[in-house]
């Protein structure tokens, strides 16, 4: 599903000198895979995730998503591809403070071509599936951290992406809440969703089918 070839990401320092965040990344991710990316702080984990998510465009190399050559796509085409294929889960949940749970779930759909009735049906389904119907009119600040991340995951998958990218999804949660989220990821993976997560936790990493270790921008194992 994903094919990275000689992917590099760097930032200019002084004259013609660069600081490399990622070096010669070659990676294949199969459909239905569940990969955990690990490594110390500054290893390039989040950068890799943002490149996969097509938020970062300043890289070199080749990136194929399915058969699409992302490295040849224009930003607008990348945005379209991202909207069709990718969902995001963040460590800080990043729910919009001024919107209710229902409205937060509706946002990704509002940015895609769904009719109003389709959106209502999908949101209702998702509320049901995650058992948060009773919380649909609450604001994020009225939820616990675990509940907020639950909404964050629901929001990430509501538009039925094939690939779910998660940046330390349990980083702000206590262990039981973290387990709940990881179980949810496993279930989603079992249902066929491809997942790439960044984590510091060995335990959470073990939910994945594969672990990738990053050190100073290099993949040190696969």
């Amino acid at each position: 599903m994903i094919r990275l070839r000689n992917l590099e990401r760097s930032y200019p320092l002084a004259k013609e000198k660069f600081f490399y965040v990622l070096r010669e990344i070659n990676l294949d991710v199969q459909e239905g895979d569940f990969i955990s990316v690990m490594g110390p702080s500054g290893a390039g984990k989040s950068t890799l995730l943002h490149i996969l998510g097509m938020h970062d465009h300043g890289w070199r190399g080749e990136y194929f998503l399915d058969e699409a050559a992302v490295h040849h796509l224009k930003p607008k085409e990348r945005a379209t591809l991202r909207n069709e294929q990718i969902g995001f889960v963040f460590q800080q949940y990043h729910l919009l403070d001024d919107l209710t749970v229902y409205e937060n779930l509706d946002i990704p759909l509002s940015y895609r071509r769904y009719s109003k009735s389709e959106r209502a049906a999908l949101v209702a389904d998702m509320l049901d599936r995650f058992q948060i119907v009773g919380k649909k009119d609450l604001y994020p600040r009225q939820l616990s951290g675990g509940q907020q991340q639950l909404v964050g995951v629901a929001r990430a998958i509501i538009a039925a992406p094939k690939l779910l990218l998660a940046d330390e999804p349990t980083g702000n949660l206590h262990s039981s809440q973290g387990e709940e989220i990881m179980e949810l990821f496993r279930k989603l993976n079992d249902e066929g969703m491809t997942i790439v997560q960044v984590t510091h936790s060995e335990k959470n990493a073990s939910y994945g089918k594969r672990i990738i270790q990053l050190r100073d921008g290099w993949i040190v194992n696969k």
């Binding site: 998510g53 938020h55 607008k76 945005a79 991202r82 909207n83 995001f88 963040f90 990043h94 919009l96 403070d97 946002i107 990704p108 940015y111 895609r112 929001r155 538009a159």
Partner: peptide, 16 residues
């Protein structure tokens, strides 16, 4: 800024 970032991450384009 952060809200716009989230919205963009969730699919909002520049025009929106």
């Amino acid at each position: 800024t952060q809200e716009f970032g989230i919205r963009m991450a969730l699919g909002a384009d520049a025009a929106r």
